[in-house]
Design a protein around this nucleic acid. Structure first.
Length: 328
DNA sequence: GGTATACTGGACCTACTGCT
DNA sequence: AGCAGTAGGTCCAGTATACC
């Protein structure tokens, strides 16, 4: 036996019940099963780390699963009729980070974007046109070819005149201009799997909805009903040009939640969740990460312009904003 | 010997809990 | 509500091992 995982496997097989890493190690020491090369001040932490990583990596193919937070069991017992049913239901631990490293991320050729004039019409035309012209490619999000823009869904949650904001932790986004900054965006790259026959935007709004539901741990019914989610308010697209990340195109959309909605802070891995006023530029705009800062400025400008023009329900959609963090 | 891969302990960050 | 201590989950640098 030469690793923590093998040790855990043997102890759990003998115990035939879920155990915490500490209990696994206690049992292993009592049985004299721990080899001398496994040592340390906090071995239960190491074992927990190994189990967590194995489950994260192999998911359902892992030898282990959680029955509760911090309690692990062997997958082989899920087929054992002598094991109680309530121990067979895997507990899914909330991720601290979201995997952005998608191998099939939506990207559009720069040439097409620069020659396109359909920014001024709407997303669907722009994306359909890109698709028709063969300007759409699916790429590895970690290695975007220089002649392509990665496409991001950027979801905002609105409650009347307020927008939901939060502070980004290190695990969430480690780009220098984003870490510890305030944000109004729930963002993710759009993947091939998001597109379907039933949407005509290559899956951009699908991904926008998925990311906001996932990050806020919400049910679809918050934005309509489980069967039929209200379409988001399509705001605009932004071409981001900042030093901290590769140039990308953000499709900014707003999801309107009911007046009673309040995110349950304890379920979030987001910090300092608060509603901010969407009718004026916040004093601490520089505290926001560059994408949110630009989106927020555009939203407030739009609100003020609409109010001036007394066209309150009309948003000027689909204009191209260029963010240059250096110029801010 | 050089390189790739796997494994390790523990640091790190966030969430939870109990106390005041 | 605010604080401190602890636990859970993730990350990373260092080391061991396997392979060429």
């Amino acid at each position: 036996m030469d690793s923590y995982l093998e040790l855990a496997e043997m102890v759990l097989r003998a115990a035939r019940r879920p155990l915490s890493p500490r209990a696994i190690l206690d049992a292993a020491y009592k049985a004299g099963m721990v080899p001398s090369h496994l040592f340390g001040k906090a071995q239960h932490k190491t074992l927990q780390a190994r189990l967590s990583e194995e489950i994260l990596r192999l998911k359902l193919d892992s030898r282990f699963y959680r029955t509760d937070p911090g309690v692990f069991f062997l997958s082989e017992f899920r087929a054992d009729p002598d094991i109680a049913d309530e121990l067979k239901d895997p507990f899914h631990a909330r991720r601290r980070t979201r995997d952005l490293a998608k191998s099939s991320a939506l990207a559009i050729s720069r040439k097409f974007v620069e020659s396109s004039n359909s920014w001024s019409t709407d997303w669907h035309n722009f994306l359909a046109e890109a698709d028709r012209c063969g300007a759409v490619h699916y790429v590895d999000a970690r290695r975007v070819p220089p002649d392509f823009y990665l496409i991001w869904a950027f979801s905002i949650v609105r409650r009347s005149t307020q927008l939901l904001s939060y502070r980004i932790g290190r695990y969430r986004d480690d780009r220098d201009a984003f870490v510890n900054r305030r944000s109004i965006g729930f963002t993710d790259v759009v993947s091939y799997e998001d597109a379907s026959l039933f949407n005509n935007d290559l899956g951009v709004t699908n991904r926008g909805l998925a990311v906001v539901l996932d990050d806020l741990d919400l049910s679809r019914s918050v934005f309509g009903s489980n069967e039929d989610v209200n379409a988001p308010d399509v705001l605009f697209s932004m071409l981001t040009v900042d030093e901290s990340s590769q140039p990308a195109i953000l499709f900014v959309m707003e999801w309107a939640c009911p007046e009673w909605f309040e995110p349950t802070a304890r379920r979030l891995s987001l910090n300092e969740v608060q509603w901010i006023d969407a009718t004026r530029v916040p004093n601490d705009l520089n505290d926001f990460e560059p994408w949110s800062s630009a989106a927020l400025s555009a939203i407030v400008d739009d609100y003020l312009r609409c109010r001036n023009e007394e066209k309150e329900n009309k948003r000027s959609a689909n204009s191209l904003y260029r963010i240059r963090t250096k110029e801010r």
